[in-house]
Amino acid sequence: MDQIYELLAISLSAILANNFIFSQFLGICPFLGVSKKVDTAVGMGIAVTFVMALASAITWAVQRFVLDPFGLGYMQTVAFILVIASLVQFIEMFLQKAMPALYTALGVYLPLITTNCAVLGVAQLNVQNSYGFIESVTYGITGGLGFLLAIVLFASIRERLVFADYPKSFEGFPIALVTAGLMALAFMGFSGLKVW
């Protein structure tokens, strides 16, 4: 029972209170780059969730069975980047063969995930918080869901920004950054949500 509560706490924290984008500022690049349309934002969000879940599982195993026994904790970043890069490559090959439809839908976003620091972030945070296997995977999935929520909300706001009346010099990224800042402020409200 305790563990269920803990998993719930991890999920809520990852999705709302400690949202990867709005309070940890990880994965900002795809957040700004792929948020012009809701459709592509959903695709990117799902792809990131998928990779984050798998990456947290595998990096947990690498940390536990390879790095820890040899006392190589300081090589974490390098090892994790290695894991993530090969994982993304592997998923790309797998999808192309098994699910060509999903592969074409994700398109260029799939390889872009390699450079998404939210994926590396979730792996490192798992180690920092000394999560077990189930907790790590939960954190990975819900962290990805938090990313999905953030990018979809942001994309739908950006689609409506066309009709907003703002000075011409704010056009494009400036107004997007202002919007992102306001959304981050709004998400700060969730930090009062202390259930753990």
Partner: peptide
């Protein structure tokens, strides 16, 4: 040596 070997093996395995 450990660091080099472990990362090398890890890279080789993934490769």
């Amino acid at each position: 040596v450990y660091a080099v070997v472990v990362l090398g093996v890890l890279g080789a395995v993934f490769g």
